[in-house]
Write a protein that binds this DNA or RNA. Structure first.
Lengths: 196, 196, 196, 196
DNA sequence: TATGAATGAGGCTTCATTCAT
DNA sequence: AATGAATGAAGCCTCATTCAT
């Protein structure tokens, strides 16, 4: 970072400002109802310059999605280690995921909004396969060890984490308070779902 | 139904046609990218008449959401009966939910798209409380009987059904094939998640 | 015409107003420098309605071109008759062409501007073949009779009429005054060019 | 040329590159649809530097027009000599003109596009009077000698050369093949048009 | 000289909504 | 009830031009 030129830093700062404004606005107002002009005003740049960094609104949003998705996966797998037991690894991922959702509510909302919209078809998902690989290892080892139910990794993912994702959204909506105790109990319940 | 006048039937037919076109278009193209004019053309009516049945695009979409949401809940609880064991009741709901998603993929996609968008804030959710009441009874009875984990109903809902919802979406996206065997196994895994 | 409904007449009136405004503005200001908003204002309609009659600016201009081109050809061949001698027929066409240019200077300028711009590639020219057919007959008969030089019709057209087109433009620009005498002399000179 | 400094040569090279890119792009894409940024990219310079050589897009285009127009006139009159007969002189100019159009099709298209657009009003044409003077002499001598029709020079120009210009455009469009034989015949036909 | 990021007015087009018929 | 032409605000994007470096 420190060896960037001034120009590069300015440029990336502007790009970052645009991405951050887009995230904040879209998670609050939705894809529609977030005009480029508002993104420009919020990020403190001119309308035109957005098109210097992103070729279209669609590309801007896709780029934002990919950035956040990668960050999400990275965070979830942050302290993943094969030195830990399978259950410890699962709980680690589970809490990382939830903490990410609680720490960055706008990112969580954006991810969910994007993945449940037709926009999602425009993004090539294979990019994420490599990033998520450790989870696949976890599944394989767990199934082979007779500890996890013999199911496809995607199904194990859903059994293990869909509840976490739902709960984070409920917490953001204010209909459930996700305190430490509830997290503990629910995390273990999810473990019950995937373990044999 | 049969005692409606011809005019009334035409009217409600038109209303229905509008709602169906809206569903098909939005689930495929998203809220934005589905102009009223396209809804009119697809449903075979004039633009103007839509405003006879719905005061605005937002109301049309909200109305559609409520219709589908109620249908969804009704279907899920279709053969719910306190004569059945708790596990039987749960599996019944689980399979009903999944079958609904598989039979009406556009409705499932629409529901998910709506509930994960800022639109969702515009709808009063208390309307659904009454419809979902049997599930709440199920939770209370299960917890009191020491069969279900002592958790709030919403959390039990997520533990029990979030995986089902995810799997239906994966099936629609073509990345998982939800056959009978997988349904059986997964349904039981979800039961593991909520039972003590 | 008189059996059109009121609505039809209004509609076509609006369409006509748009076409006329477009002609006037473009011949004066060029394709660029003639925004749709100005066309709307000049023709007394809203911006949006233009797109009810024409799918895009390009289609509006192409449509205008075709209309004028057909009118031009029709006018040029107005009193064409095989009862006349070849020379009479030629002079008839020649004067019709020039009179059209003098009577409708904006149409002449628009035609020339369009046909000398890359826009021209977007228009299918075969549509005009049928309209211009009498001129082709004229050429064939003249060549076969040994009165016209044995050249392709397009070349005979240029020899016969390119000067007329140039002169009309010079007249519009004010650098040549195209009075009756000059027209007579030049028309006969053009006849010299095509006759054997 | 050779006594220019290195810096000067680079500068004029850049200027030339800009003019050449502008010519190629405009003849292909038109005035609109040829942004300065594309001219910059095509000529391998930065956007900003264009404004060092030309004060605006309009000036760039006018400058280009004048350059090409002068070159065109110079080429047309290249081997003009009062030692030749009037007919020889005419045919010389005629073939020079056509050859120019065939050798530099983009220049021909640009000239026609420019002169048939409202842009043309922005250029002072008197600059060309001096360059075209020999043709005026040719007219005067021809008329006085009783060999050319007694018409204004501009009219004699059109009678003599408008067909050539049209044919070059038809050749570029691919609807007429301008081979040597056709050139010979047509050139003589044009002579018929101007001679008594 | 030279760069190219930056500006922002303005262009084309869309679309929710209205209203005369 | 029904039509669909009409409106006009607003959206996305372009591009001539400027200016800090």
């Amino acid at each position: 970072m420190s060896d960037k030129t001034f120009v590069e830093k300015c440029a990336s700062d502007k790009r970052t400002a645009i991405l951050e404004a887009t995230l904040a606005l879209i998670s609050e107002r939705g894809f529609h109802n977030t005009p480029m002009s508002l993104i420009a005003k919020t990020s403190g740049v001119s309308t035109g310059i957005i098109y210097h960094y992103f070729s279209s609104k669609e590309e801007l949003i896709s780029e934002l999605y990919k950035d956040i998705k990668f960050e999400f996966i990275r965070t979830m797998l942050a302290d993943y280690s094969e030195d830990l037991s399978l259950k410890e690894r699962f709980l680690g991922m589970w809490f990382n995921l939830v903490r990410y959702g609680l720490n960055y509510p706008t990112k969580g909302l954006f991810l969910e909004q994007f993945e449940n919209s037709p926009y999602t078809k425009c993004v090539v998902k294979e990019d994420f396969e490599h990033a998520i690989a450790p989870f696949f290892d976890f599944c394989q080892q767990g199934v082979e060890a007779g500890i996890l139910k013999p199911l496809p990794p995607l199904v194990l993912f859903d059994l293990g984490f869909s509840t976490a994702i739902f709960l984070v959204k409920r917490h953001a909506a204010g209909v459930v308070v996700l305190d430490d105790e509830l997290m503990q109990t629910t995390a273990n319940a999810c473990w019950d779902a995937i373990k044999i």
